[in-house]
Nucleic acid binder design. Sequence first.
DNA 1: CACTTTGTTGCTTATTATGCAACTTTATTA
DNA 2: TAATAAAGTTGCATAATAAGCAACAAAGTG
Lengths: 261, 261
Amino acid sequence: MSEIKALARGLDMIDYVWNSNRSVGVSELATMLQIDKSSASRLARTLIQHGYLDNAGSSRRLIVGKRLVQIGCEIDHRLALRQRALPYLEQLAVATGESAHMAVHASGKALVVEDVEIASSLRVVGGVGRQVAMHCTAVGKALLAFCSLPMPDELTPMMPATITDSQELALHLNEIRRQGYAFDDEEHEPGVRCMAAPVTLSDSTIAVIGISGPSVRITDQRIAPIAQLLIETAGRLSQELRHSFQPPRKNGVPVAAKAVS
Amino acid sequence: MSEIKALARGLDMIDYVWNSNRSVGVSELATMLQIDKSSASRLARTLIQHGYLDNAGSSRRLIVGKRLVQIGCEIDHRLALRQRALPYLEQLAVATGESAHMAVHASGKALVVEDVEIASSLRVVGGVGRQVAMHCTAVGKALLAFCSLPMPDELTPMMPATITDSQELALHLNEIRRQGYAFDDEEHEPGVRCMAAPVTLSDSTIAVIGISGPSVRITDQRIAPIAQLLIETAGRLSQELRHSFQPPRKNGVPVAAKAVS
DNA sequence: CACTTTGTTGCTTATTATGCAACTTTATTA
DNA sequence: TAATAAAGTTGCATAATAAGCAACAAAGTG
């Protein structure tokens, strides 16, 4: 029932360095994880030897190691998230007549990673690479709700409808979790309504997909059916990802030792 | 001087599961890493608890965990590889008058992740998402040479010039490593020559950038200067990545504990 | 240049990871 | 479907080893 302490501590160190998103000292790690400096130092060395952490330049401060960068760069393509999502986004855009997009969480913001626009002259123009706030957009709120992310520090008011109270937002997120989709009712931009639903892999949300359109077209009656469609589409994408991620091979082949790294 | 054994073993387990690219059993891990089944079992449990490994579906076989998927989905954007590469690719396209692109390795293929085309009516049309073979393209060969990837299983002949002998390819890759760039002389498509150079981060190649053009324009005399330009451009992009990856902050701010996961 | 903070190493002890063996669960075969 | 084989988990004793202390070394800081 218990866990291997040394390993657990090492993994915690990786997590801490990763989450802090900057260079971290051994002492800081020791303090935060409540372990001795010496242990932290030795664990860090092992992590460095294996490439999971690295020294920042010439200093002895710790940063994320190349191994994680390698894994990170490749897993993204093993999943081929963007590529796989594209047809689904196109379906969404056609079915709803509105721009569709996919976003992931990236250091406190929702980052648009894929984007399909429609022909209509009145449309919401997105653009890959755009970063939007978490608390006042559909994709942001969906990420907050389904990724178990910490509350944003500041809830900057953007519009009259923007939720600026932390308590209120927490309740709102619960509602989103319950309903399975997020709705942004002109909380970010005037005249724009957005909706988003989570794409999951092994029970954790790795991205969200959504649509944005002018409020005049996204009428109250359309919300339920669009939500339905979003949830269903996100579910199908999730399914596809799961299939490619968990190799279907029912029973592993013996397989000779493969060259490692 | 030594390393924390339990942690090292755990990391080795992650590596093994990662490299095998399929579901792996505890016994297999134990055999391969020469540890006892029971230890492997307990280490695996710890890794699962921390999200670094996961059980494949209902079975007890191990696959890469969500934590790594999370990291993967995010690191790409921390680096903002695509975004940052774009201006460099545009420079390349302008300077050479040929289409420029960036590719990464994705399960045995070279995957084009960014692409800049030129106006000329005679041009090589690429397209983001295109996957090409490793052994007969400039980007593929560059990835093979600089990423320390295993030799492809099959060297399918595409053109008369395609390298189909494993030995010969190995020598060719050495040459590529020595020169710092890869050259595809109509090995993949008739009348098309390509060149590519590696983009690195902390000594490991994470992508390659290159150009493709008709052989009639990419003449022998132009090869050296273009190679020069490619290497130099890839170097500048690598530099930029390194700077953003190792936060410039000279000395870490104390920083309050951040909510972790 | 002195001083403070941070990181590393030697050493001892007690924690704890390990490996064996028994047992349980899952997969495979007839 | 039962029987058999393989794979995975748990209890336990022991030895290995990670943890912690303290002293030392090395960077940063004023």
